[in-house]
């Protein structure tokens, strides 16, 4: 038989340990994307033309190029940048890459959420003489964000499924761990299959969670 249960069980602890790195990278990367994505969304709406142009161009460029090539750029090319060049650890580079890439998608999601808030809400805020900051914080964002939470959830799952790419910049996450195990023992079936199953199970459960969220949101209105 091709599949060896004893071997599979013996490598499970190492894989679960590596899964922690994967999950850590996902959470940190997504936190970065949530914040930076919102900044990009503000940037694109800005009345300062240069700012909105730069934000727009940045979003278009990042969305049109592969995450993997961006990771290579951050890890290998960034240190060679004159004056500002910095070397990042593999994990930091990976988190930054995931965060920047997904922030451009999230900025569009935020934008859709903000656009969906009725005009009358802005006018009411003006009529009540709210400051600009108060209007955003107390009126607009609390209405714009809840409807987009399921979409954000789907991007979180998408980011989780993109983490194997971090292995390209030598982050020892799930896939690279499996590959190292496989290279040492000359058995690839178990480690790669188990990694696939782990991703399948976790992302499937998470997507059920998102569906539940969506259902909750829809039934509330």
């Amino acid at each position: 038989m091709l599949w060896n249960w004893d071997y599979a069980l013996s490598i499970l602890p190492s894989l679960l340990e590596a899964l922690q790195v994967t999950i850590y990278a996902t959470i940190m990367g997504f936190a970065f994307a949530l914040i930076f994505g919102l900044l990009l969304a503000f940037g694109r709406r800005s009345k300062i033309r240069v700012l909105s142009l730069i934000s727009g161009a940045f979003v278009e460029f990042i969305r049109s190029t592969p995450l993997l090539a961006q990771l290579f750029f951050i890890f290998y090319a960034l240190p060679q940048l004159p004056y500002v060049g910095i070397s990042l650890s593999p994990l930091t580079a990976g988190i930054l890459g995931l965060g920047i890439h997904y922030s451009t998608y999230l900025s569009e999601v935020y934008r859709a959420g903000i656009d969906a808030v009725p005009r009358g809400q802005w006018e009411a805020a003006i009529a009540l003489n709210f400051s600009k900051g108060r209007t955003w914080l107390n009126i607009i964002l609390p209405q714009a964000i809840p409807p987009i939470v399921p979409v954000l959830g789907n991007y979180l799952i998408g980011m989780f499924k993109d983490t194997p790419m971090l292995s390209a910049v030598t982050v020892v996450e799930l896939l690279l761990t499996a590959r190292i195990i496989g290279t040492h023992s000359f058995r690839f079936i178990e480690p790669f299959t188990m990694v696939g199953i782990l991703f399948l199970v976790l992302s499937y459960i998470s997507s059920l969670g998102v569906q539940w969220l969506e259902y909750r949101l829809n039934s509330r209105t």
Binding site: L2, K161, D162, P164, M165, S167, L175, A178, R179, G182, F188, I189, F192, T193, V195, G196, I197, F199, L200, V201, S203, Y204
Partner: peptide, 21 residues
């Protein structure tokens, strides 16, 4: 669900390293 859930890179590795077995 299988092909969306197990991720592209894992599938590539699987096809590259495991299928020859």
């Amino acid at each position: 669900e299988l092909f969306r859930g197990t991720t592209l890179l894992v599938q590539l590795f699987w096809a590259y390293f495991v299928l020859p077995h």
